[in-house]
Structure formats: structure tokens, C-alpha cells
Design a protein around this nucleic acid. Structure first.
Lengths: 342, 342
DNA sequence: TTGTAGGCGTTATCAA
DNA sequence: TTGATAACGCCTACAA
């Protein structure tokens, strides 16, 4: 008896009641007797009833779907964030649709529209590196669709954000290197793009100042912060014959690139040069030496983003004041920065 | 003028035509004049019309949504597969919903039901390690809902599958080690669970036989194949004082664990022991030495899975014969297995 | 080529 | 506590 799917009408017919009653029974509506409720639930099971969320969504004007846009899903950090969102969302009977922008603004807009067409109830976004237009997000706000930005955010759109304290992360990393006795600390960063790097840089500067270490601008290298960029910057660094005893890279990928070049050139890590990355990508514990880095607690970030989303949803009718949730990062100390020996 | 969302009725009203005409214009129905079509498209743009896919889905009985279930999203391999699926799906105006089973059967069933409630048009699944029941998938088949299994599959459910030739992968890896002069090749595997490991093991055996290398069962170590398992197995291996000159680990994670223990014990890789992993996880190019491994072309696998899905969808009315798509793996040779020196 | 009418499955409103 | 009715936005026979 596969036949067709059972609907609330089928249940109603069997029980000689109406669909509205069935609907109420199924939705824990208080205006229903225990007896009929029990009967309905039993019949629902018998008929293997599966609610059609689509119909409910159409009627209610909400889909129980949350859209997430990330630059790329293929990155431990982002997939962990997604996982965090799912954990919270699933508990509240929401599902998650994921799309990638591939760091492209047009793609970001297209994918956003696709999500809207799928009638998501709201969108969580980590904006792409090159995104310089935000009209599509402002539109969203005007249309009253909940929007939460996480990790890579902007203040241009007046909505809730979830970030880690990148400033603190940069500070902790730099301070740690200073405590290891480092005085000439190179910094790899990318100040032209998203805020997160600027904040980490600010932490770096502040830690230097607090410890009376003179800032040397020539020790700051800017790039796209991929592995290959870390390699290139380190090669330039070595070729320049500048003195340095540490590198704080605002990206784990660039840090690994640095590690490779240093080793290839016989520079010992951490003995000659201490090294710290940022993000706690899984591979940082696999390198030799393992890489000191800063954990951003991606799962917690996802959870916080989801919670922010639901807060907006709750507050929809009242006026809502956008919140900025700031998570604390943690320095994960591994071998690449431990001068004190084993 | 934010007001409410425009519907086809709004467009119709503006143009003094009916909603059905608008619908036809919007859906490239041939029964429409070029003139009205142009007018409708123009007005749609003016009113910033966004189609309500929900309503269309309800009416048509299909949602343009594909559900994907993976053991964990936080794994380069799986997230790349998802990306591959997205590429194909998005082109055909389908969206993707992702869920994780976390390697748990009950979770797998729950998540499957959630996807069905979201009225996905079909499901792509990589089954969990511990999944030993398949009724929920058989149900799916009976209900005529397209199902495609990928990577971790089973033959218990008569549906299309997409896998790589794990046997060939195991063969290539082992053969490569033999060509490097290795004769005592340890194998890390997990034969109690999913097929993929059995196939890799079969490739290992066959390569040994083809090259007249005697098989020594005591060189096969079984575990859960995580990093820590690789460490444990390698410690046991060293403690046993067996002679060996290579390790072929059916998982990159276990291979990295092996690499760590070997180095900690002063065993040189590749000079003393050559090492090959499996999956081409990104970190395999970051280790020192970089890790020889087998690429499974996850993006291509995702694309193939999506294509299989659409084939089933197309053929829905006719009888459909399940297909097994087998992708060819590729050996990625890096430093960890190159005895011939730099 | 266009219009009419009905319904996809559910829920909200009103009345009983 | 339950029933009747309409509506969410769209698509599709069928009729014109």
C-alpha cells in the first residue's frame, strides 16, 4: 500500500472529523480535547502521515529554512560554523540551506536571490573578501528579512553580527611571542580587505606598544594570505636580510607557507624563528613543528549566529536593536613558538 | 515602497491580463505571444517580482530541493563533494540542503525524515560507518523518491551509486611502494566497516601478488583510522620489532599519525620507511615530508552523483535501471614515498 | 493566444 | 471543543 501520501484530510475522513481539527491536534493547539488529539496522533501513525511543510510554509508565510552564505564550504572554519548553526536550528525544527559565494560579489548576490526564492526565513552571511557593495543586504533589511553577519562582517549594514575578538587574538599571539623573548616580530596580513585582518593587526601593534617594542613597518608584509603567499612573503623576507626572530601570520595557510620556506632555507622553527598562525585549522596540529595558532571557536560562532537569528525572528514585531556578539579567541600554544625547548 | 511582495496577480493587474498568462510568460510556455511575454517580464522587473517557489513546489509537487546527507560536513572530502553537487544542481535551478549524520544511524534516519518533511525531490547519501540498517532507504525507493549513494555505499539498496575505484586506488598505492623497492609493506585498514576499506585492502593484496611479494597478515593493522589510531598502530608496530620498509594507510589521518610516531622515534621518512595515505586531504601537502596519497576527485564525485540524481528524475516514469558510476582515482606522488632522493 | 476555474495541503478566522 | 470556509501563490486542464 504505498499509494499516495496521506494528508490531514485522510486522517480527518478516517476519524469522521474535519481537517481543521486534525491540524489543531497535530500542532499542539490548546483548543482541542485530549481524546481527539490521541485519536488523531494514532491515526497519523497508522497512515504513516508525513506533514507537508511546503503547504504549511505557504500558508504561514514561513519556510522553517535558514540560508547560509559562506565564501567557501571547503574550509574547516566555515564548515564548523555551519555545524554550529545546524545544532541550534535543528533543535527548533529549522533546516539549513548552504550556498557558497566563492568570494565573488556577483555570485553572492545571485546565491542570495536563490535563497530568497527558496523562501528562507532569514540569512546568515560571512561576506566575501572582495565584496564592496552591500545594497543587496540593505534591501534585505528593508524587506524585514532577518540577517545575521558572522566572522567577516561590515558595519555598513545595520544588523546583528557575530565575530570573535580578532584584536584580542592578534594581541595574544603577539604577546606570546614577546614572552618567548622575540623582539623582531614580522607580521603577515592583508589590510586592504575584510576587517578581521585589520583587527588582528591592531592587536599586534598594541601588544608591541604595551611591551615597549618599537614598531618596524618594514616587518609588515601584505598579501592574499594563501599558502603560496606565505611562501612568497617569506622568500622576500629572507632575501631582504632583515633581522627577525618571529613571524605572526594572520592566517594559518600563510603560516604553513612560511614554515615551508624557512625549513627549506635551514632556518629552524622555533629555535631561530618562532611562528604563530591564526584560525586553528586542523592541519596546524599536523605540521612539523606543530603550529601555534588562535582558535576562533567556529562551532560556538555558528551557535551564536543562529541564536542571533532567532532573536531577530522573535523580536520581529517590536523594534529590534542589532546586537554585536563578540566571542573570545584562545591562543593554542604548540611547538612552533616554544623557544624554551621541550 | 517596500510594502508586500509582488505576486503574479499584481503583475496581471498592472497589465490588465490574467495571472495564468503571467505564469505562462514567466515559465517560457510556448502558448504565449512575444509581446505579452516581453511586457510581463518588464513589469516583473519593475515590481521587483520574486517568484514564490514554495507555492510552485506545492502545486507541482516538487520543491527543486536536493537533500544531501554526509557523515560530517567538516571534512575536506565531503565538503568538496557537496560543492560538486551544487555546481550541477544550481545550473538546473535546484538548491541543496545539507545535513550531517555524525556517523550515527538514528541520526541518519532522523535527518532523512527532516529532509523529506522539507519535501526534497531526492536524496544523495554517503552512509555512516556504523549504519547496518537500510530499511529507511528501501522505504525511500518504494515511495519513488530518487536516491543516490556516493562514496560510502551499499549494495543492499538497489539504487544508483557513485564511487571511486577504491580497489584501483589501493593497487596503485601499493604498486608504487613496490616500485620504490619496498618489500615489507604494512597496511592500515578497517575491514569491519564500510566497503571502501575492503576494496583498498583488496588492491593492496592484488598488487603484492602481481609482484610476487609474499603477503604477511601480521603486517595488517586494523583500527578506526583516525590520527590517534595511526599513532597507536605505529607504536605497536615499532614495539613489535617487525621489519617493514613502508606503510600504506587507507586513511590520510592515520598516515599522519604514523608519520608523527615514526619521526618521534627517529625513523626517517621516506628513507627508512616510505609512507602513502589515502584521500588527498589538503593537509597532506603541508606535512613534512609531504604525503603521497590517492586523490578521489571529490568534486567530480559530487557532479556525478548529481547527474545520477537527475537521470533518475528524468526516467521516473519509465523503468529505471540503477547505475554504478566508478571514478578513477589518481596517485599523487609526494616526498613521503620517494626513496630515490631529491 | 488568452481566460476561467480549481486545487496542491495547510492554517487562520469566524461561527456554532 | 469543533466545523466551515477561505486563503497562501502558483500552475494547468479546459474552454473560449
Amino acid at each position: 500500500m504505498a499509494s499516495k501520501k496521506a494528508t490531514i484530510h485522510d486522517i480527518a475522513k478516517e476519524l469522521n472529523i474535519t481537517a481543521s481539527t486534525v491540524s489543531r491536534a497535530l500542532n499542539n493547539n490548546p483548543r482541542i480535547s485530549e481524546a481527539t488529539k490521541k485519536a488523531v496522533l494514532g491515526m497519523a501513525k497508522d497512515l504513516n502521515y508525513q506533514p507537508n511543510n511546503l503547504a504549511a510554509a505557504l500558508r504561514k508565510g514561513k519556510s522553517q529554512l535558514i540560508g547560509i552564505i559562506v565564501p567557501t564550504i571547503n574550509r574547516s572554519f566555515f564548515s564548523s560554523v555551519i555545524r554550529g548553526v545546524e545544532e541550534v536550528a535543528n533543535k527548533l525544527n529549522y533546516r539549513v540551506i548552504v550556498s557558497q559565494s566563492n568570494e565573488d560579489v556577483d555570485n553572492e548576490i545571485a546565491t542570495l536571490n536563490a535563497l530568497l526564492n527558496a523562501r528562507v526565513d532569514g540569512v546568515l552571511v560571512s561576506i566575501g573578501k572582495n565584496t564592496d557593495r552591500f545594497e543587496h543586504y540593505k534591501d534585505l533589511m528593508e524587506r524585514g528579512i532577518p540577517l545575521v553577519l558572522f566572522d567577516r562582517t561590515t558595519n555598513e549594514v545595520g544588523t546583528s553580527q557575530v565575530v570573535i575578538d580578532d584584536y584580542l587574538g592578534g594581541y595574544l599571539a603577539t604577546e606570546h611571542l614577546i614572552k618567548q623573548g622575540c623582539k623582531k616580530i614580522v607580521h603577515f596580513t592583508n589590510l586592504k580587505q575584510v576587517n578581521i585582518y585589520k583587527e588582528r593587526y591592531r592587536g599586534y601593534l598594541e601588544a608591541l606598544r604595551d611591551n615597549d617594542i618599537p614598531f618596524d613597518e618594514s616587518l609588515v608584509y601584505q598579501s592574499d594570505m594563501q599558502l603560496v603567499d606565505g611562501r612568497n612573503c617569506t622568500e622576500q623576507l629572507l632575501a631582504s636580510h632583515k633581522k627577525f626572530d618571529a613571524i605572526f601570520s594572520a592566517s594559518d595557510y600563510a603560516a604553513v607557507g612560511a614554515l615551508q620556506i624557512l625549513k627549506e632555507n635551514g632556518v629552524k622553527v622555533p629555535e631561530d624563528v618562532a611562528l604563530v598562525g591564526f584560525s586553528n585549522e586542523p592541519f596546524t596540529s599536523f605540521t612539523d613543528p606543530s603550529l601555534t595558532t588562535v582558535s576562533q571557536f567556529p562551532i560556538e560562532m555558528g551557535q551564536a549566529a543562529a541564536e542571533s537569528f532567532f532573536e531577530i525572528l522573535e523580536a520581529k514585531k517590536k523594534k529590534f536593536i542589532p546586537q554585536k556578539t563578540v566571542l573570545q579567541p584562545e591562543l593554542i600554544i604548540r611547538d612552533s613558538s616554544l623557544k624554551s625547548g621541550k
